[in-house]
Design a protein around this nucleic acid. Sequence first.
DNA 1: CTCTCGATGCGCT
DNA 2: GCGCATCGAGAGA
Length: 203
Amino acid sequence: MGEKLPRDFYDRPTLEVAQGLLGKRLVRTFGRTRLSGVIVETEAYLGPADAASHARFGPTSRASPMFGEPGHAYIYFTYGMHHCMNAVTEGIGSGTGVLIRALEPSEGQEQMRRNRLRNRKAKTRILDTDLCSGPGKLCQALGLDISLNHADLSGNILWIEAGKTMPTDRIGKSPRVGIREGREHPWRFYVADSPHVSAHPKY
DNA sequence: CTCTCGATGCGCT
DNA sequence: GCGCATCGAGAGA
């Protein structure tokens, strides 16, 4: 297994971190087992000046983790039923972070399937490529919820391990998904040939 | 495959 | 009260 990424990794410009996280492994301890997957899709959120970011209103109670120390999780609840996870980047006060949008599952797939099936009507088997192919899906699969908001990514519950550095020519770029403002910025990054990225985008 | 739409809780101008 | 950094069901082609 790879080493946990050091805090220095996160304390860099957010667009670099967002691309640098592609190929790294997100790990969550779930009881005695590890649930993990390789990050294949991310989005950068660049702070108070970014009209699409939760940080646009400043350090409110919801967005405050992004204004804290880099290398922590910012996990929020949205649409009345979904969670999304970010890694906080840059220095204290920056308000920046990287949304983790999709994983290629690598450990604990059966537990992930059970976690995903909980709130699903049709209990048909979920394809490997659909297990973590979206920010809400991966949080459900890994059991990430508001109780892990602000978790230190150098702790023993949730972290990201070193892995590949994705070559630039395999990184696709597009506008971010599901936002109104800021669509002019190509701040979504994904592994171009991965079948595990989220379905939505037709960029 | 495509598109549309409902679910459902809450942060916030 | 509005609008979500979403998902999946259902309908149609």
